[in-house]
Simulated assay, not measured.
Amino acid sequence: MRPFIVSSLITLATCTTLQPAQEIFSNPPHDDGFRIPTPYESTVMARRILRLESIGTISTIFPSHKSSDEPSTSENRPSDVAGSPLGLMEYFADCEPTTGNPTLLEVAIANSYKNARAGSNVTLSFRWHPPTSYYKTPPYAAHSPAALPRVALTGYLERLDKDDIEANKVADCFTKYHPEARIWLPGNDIHESHFARLVVNEIYWFGGFGDRAHIGWLNPSDWKNISESEIDEIRLPGEKETSWWGWFGRWEL
């Protein structure tokens, strides 16, 4: 585990001066001892968000060519959407913690998965949602959604085989995050569905305000190798525990 520097981090509530753009992107130490978190520290936070959140947006591109998964006439897909992006809400779960690849429940009828099967890359975007009381605590700008971290994972979909599903107890894991999804698990009588993983190739992190947080691409190797203890020990803004490190400082709800 890499050590995290705790003592030099101060609360966002006391930091109101914006830094010049060139300083934001070079992540310098501030005169008052505050520093922007490193990309590695940001990666640990991103993995904790993956652990705690369960709903995001999946983005794909409509194919510009005919495929074996051509939509039926009943779908009535306009021809001019070819090459356009599609972003829709999607369930996910952290069922493969040793890789950081999110688990998805691929429902065959959904356009997002049709696009993926036609060759589209896939982006899964999600953000951290603290308890609602966090937003009601001054300073309000520091506790706004704009100040909170969000992340986008880009890659491709890979269906899980029987061995993967059994080894990782995927059905149990997924329904722990999404109990209502039991009715559309693979083998249901409503829609054809399959468990799939998003194989993460790249990670884009937006930690919050640019003079307070890291913004940029994270190292995929770091993403895959974050340890369970690192995920367990870190705390995100608004979590109830107060013995955590972070550039937001310590908060009690």
Rank of each mutant, 00 (worst) to 15 (best):
T99M: 05
S72Q: 10
P149K: 07
W217Q: 13
F25M: 08
D94W: 01
P237Y: 02
A167C: 01
E41N: 03
E228N: 14
E228M: 05
F209I: 10
L86E: 02
I234T: 11
K224V: 13
S42Y: 04
S229C: 03
Y135I: 07
D232N: 15
E106D: 13
R197K: 15
R150F: 02
V107E: 08
G208F: 09
R159E: 08
H194R: 14
L185Y: 05
I190T: 10
I10H: 08
T99K: 14
F126C: 12
L52I: 02
G87Q: 03
A142V: 08
W184N: 09
A21Y: 13
I36S: 01
S221Q: 15
T132V: 15
N219Q: 03
G155R: 05
P20N: 09
S72Y: 04
E180Y: 11
Y113L: 07
L160W: 01
K240D: 14
R77G: 01
N225Q: 10
N168F: 08
W247E: 07
A82H: 03
A181P: 09
G33L: 06
T17E: 12
E192K: 02
C173Q: 04
A167Q: 14
E230R: 00
L52R: 13
E241W: 12
D172G: 09
S26Y: 01
T103P: 04
P149D: 02
G56T: 08
H30F: 13
E70K: 04
R51H: 15
M89L: 15
R48F: 07
V122D: 10
G187E: 11
P37H: 06
P78R: 13
D94E: 13
F62R: 03
I5V: 13
S26A: 11
H214W: 10
Y140E: 00
R35S: 10
D172M: 10
L88S: 14
V44R: 01
P3H: 07
E180T: 13
I55T: 14
P37D: 06
A46N: 09
D32G: 03
F209G: 00
G207A: 08
